[in-house]
């Protein structure tokens, strides 16, 4: 007979999570932002306020959502795709600021994908914009 799994009370769970986050470095996530062509500079300026040190712009194109756009000949609106690395804790404050700008500057989407692993302490320091003792990362 297997024992029934009893979930931890909520306050205990929080304590566990806290301990974990103290020993491991803070997580980075990859952020993909898709905006209209030429508008990427505006967004990158805002990103830099939130310690995003590296962002790369790739030229992309949107796909036509309707037959009407095809008829008008504007079937493939050109886009900028911004790839950047951001600390997990900065995502929500950044999104709160971007939210309105995305609506004003036309159809834009932003999303983040969690990273699973990374190599290089100095690179991590540079990307996360924070000074961390060497020992802490080894533990993680």
């Amino acid at each position: 007979m297997k024992k029934k799994h009893i979930p931890l009370p909520v306050f205990l769970k929080r304590k566990q999570e806290k301990k974990k986050s103290e020993s491991t470095p803070e997580k980075l996530e990859m952020m993909i932002t898709i905006v209209e062509r030429g508008k990427s500079d505006k967004f990158i300026d805002i990103f830099q306020q939130y310690n995003v040190n590296v962002s790369m712009v790739v030229l992309g194109k949107g796909t036509a959502p309707t037959e009407l756009l095809n008829l008008l000949g504007i079937a493939e609106p050109s886009k900028d795709v911004i790839l950047s690395l951001i600390l997990e804790k900065n995502i929500i404050p950044l999104y709160e600021e971007i939210q309105n700008l995305l609506k004003i500057e036309g159809k834009g989407v932003s999303l983040t994908i969690p990273l699973t692993s990374m190599v290089g302490i100095t690179m991590y320091k540079f990307l996360s914009h924070e000074n961390i003792k060497k020992g802490e990362i080894k533990n993680g």
């Binding site: 898709i34 756009l69 999104y95 159809k107 989407v109 932003s110 994908i113 969690p114």
Partner: peptide, 23 residues
């Protein structure tokens, strides 16, 4: 496919309305 942890700029209400969303 990759999991997404945060999204911005998708409106749920017009789920079926294909005209509403490009990009």
């Amino acid at each position: 496919s990759l999991p997404i942890s945060h999204v911005l700029g998708i409106n749920k209400e017009n789920k079926l309305n294909t005209e509403s969303k490009g990009s």
